[in-house]
């Protein structure tokens, strides 16, 4: 079914592309948002990726690779968008995040804000790796192929990304604890 749609879209059938794009948008938008952490930027990245999908469809050699190819274009679009964003935001000062005024009861429990901050500190490529593997549940060989890196590199970068997140959360927790207990951060 999808192969038929891809074949028709390759021939310039816009209705077929609309059907493909409708399905793809619902899958790609959460992925883009998770990577970019910004709804508008995520929508831009998805749009740019799917415009490119439409434009370059005739050059796709194997219609059965449509999903993987689309994911790859999306990840590339997200990374481009993140870099563009970074270039335009170079002069924005990042203030220290204020600690919560009420203790959460357990420093060992990771809260959503901590995860958010730790994840946002990662490079876009590392965020993409984590999202592809832990959100889309793609096997690591597929993740590596999507990002265009060797399997070993994907494994090491995934491990490193999670380790960096963990370390950032640990540091964040220590700061919170110190502030709660009146020690200088």
């Amino acid at each position: 079914m999808q192969r038929d749609l891809v074949e028709r879209a390759r021939q310039g059938d816009h209705d077929a592309f609309a059907e493909l794009a409708g399905a793809a948008i619902s899958q790609l938008t959460p992925v883009a948002y998770l990577i970019l952490r910004d709804p508008e930027q995520a929508q831009d990245a998805v749009q740019n990726a799917l415009v490119r999908v439409w434009r370059d469809l005739p050059t796709l050699r194997d219609p059965d690779r449509f999903d993987a190819w689309t994911r790859r274009l999306l990840v590339r679009s997200c990374i481009d968008e993140a870099r563009r964003l970074r270039r335009h935001r170079f002069d924005v000062r990042i203030d220290a995040i204020a600690p919560p005024t009420v203790a959460d009861g357990s420093a060992a429990i990771v809260d959503r804000d901590q995860l958010e901050r730790a994840f946002a500190k990662l490079e876009p490529e590392a965020r993409a790796l984590i999202v592809l593997h832990h959100y889309l549940d793609l096997p690591l060989p597929d993740v590596a192929a999507t990002i265009g890196i060797p399997l070993g590199t994907a494994k090491s970068r995934l491990h490193r990304g999670l380790r960096e997140m963990h370390a950032a959360i640990d540091a964040d927790t220590r700061v919170r604890t110190d502030l709660r207990e009146g020690r200088p951060a």
């Binding site: 619902s26 998770l34 415009v51 439409w54 434009r55």
Partner: peptide, 30 residues
Amino acid sequence: VAVWLRDDALPASPDQLDALLVRTMATRQR
């Protein structure tokens, strides 16, 4: 992390497809 990602994922908005199709209608395929 996996649970947080699933909770945090933002669904697509309904008007995204329309906006995309306007753009692709104006875009020639290579």
